[in-house]
Design a protein around this nucleic acid. Sequence first.
DNA 1: CGTCTATTTGAATGTACTCAAAAGCGGTGG
DNA 2: CCACCGCTTTTGAGTACATTCAAATAGACG
Lengths: 192, 192
Amino acid sequence: MTFNLILANVEKHISLNESERKFFCSLLKEKKFSKKDLVLSEGQTCRNISFVNSGILRAFFNYDGKESTIMFAMKDWWVTDINCFIKHQPAMLNIVALEKTEVLQLTKENMDKLLHEFPKFEKFFRIIFQNAYIREQLRTIQNLSLPAAERYDNFCTKYERIANMITQKQIASYLGITPEFLSVIRAKKTKS
Amino acid sequence: MTFNLILANVEKHISLNESERKFFCSLLKEKKFSKKDLVLSEGQTCRNISFVNSGILRAFFNYDGKESTIMFAMKDWWVTDINCFIKHQPAMLNIVALEKTEVLQLTKENMDKLLHEFPKFEKFFRIIFQNAYIREQLRTIQNLSLPAAERYDNFCTKYERIANMITQKQIASYLGITPEFLSVIRAKKTKS
DNA sequence: CGTCTATTTGAATGTACTCAAAAGCGGTGG
DNA sequence: CCACCGCTTTTGAGTACATTCAAATAGACG
């Protein structure tokens, strides 16, 4: 039951036989978080990449009190502080549960073991990182070229499901603006 | 001679035998561009990922006249409009040569052929995209949390070599500010 | 029910942009 | 090799976008 979603996620991109499934699942550690629990906190070594089985996570950067949201991760998404995960460094990001959330975690060591044992998983992670790169390049394009109001519209369209589950404060921190200013943007939109 | 740099780039991450080298190189197409030539123009299907053998490229997004630079690619870097390359869509980005530049290009079809024939290249592209993702996630963190003056400092530190080869206008478009404002930032810095 | 946080609203401020003009610099052709 | 042309950079004034701070209101949760 626990592994159904993650296996489907993997088998969208590569096909597995039973022993590969077994081995992969044996490397995963299940963890449950309550609302507001930290999956990762800044400064702590980032040992895991997490797959969200249920619930929702928020990854954010804290710059003396001002929070910038790097990503929201829903069910069926992978999330980590990729820089610190790969390079075994203290995390820059915090990852917090926005509601009761279950994740499956893969350590860097287990990921390496998996890739060594079953190289076909190289393809899987190639695609995962390829998609992450696409997502981030598109976000960079928007951040640089669009004013806040349009970035807000795009966010609501693209992440409709997420937008309805989180607060405006969190959306503002994803867009790189203050909650007060997002409130003004929304007020203007209602008028027109 | 032409393939020395790209083979070294690949063999930093995976080891190749002679037939793998041969096959890989046979899929590459060499192209030369003069200063200001377009390697890719917006609207055109993005068929290639390009490896810079010499020279320097700039990838930018054009939003009715206002240009936003997505990346600079130096010798030994890979560059493409990743979204449109993977999805076979019309490019959003333009890629222009900032000086006489030689590239080696791999089409999506040839990349697929390569991955199919020699799956070990999955690992190579996994690492390439992983690094690209790291780069973009770090950039997003900075874009959201730092004011323009600090982003400029970071750019000069991190891309020192690039910073000395390009105009301030181009740096400004990478930072998401106007050249006039970058000029003001620099003037203030000199004073202090 | 009370408390804590999110959201709204407004005033004052700061950051960054637009437009315009002048100065600087680099490449090109004669 | 110089003079000119076009683009980059600088500077300044006026404006727009976005922030800060404060206070009032609304919502969520134990």
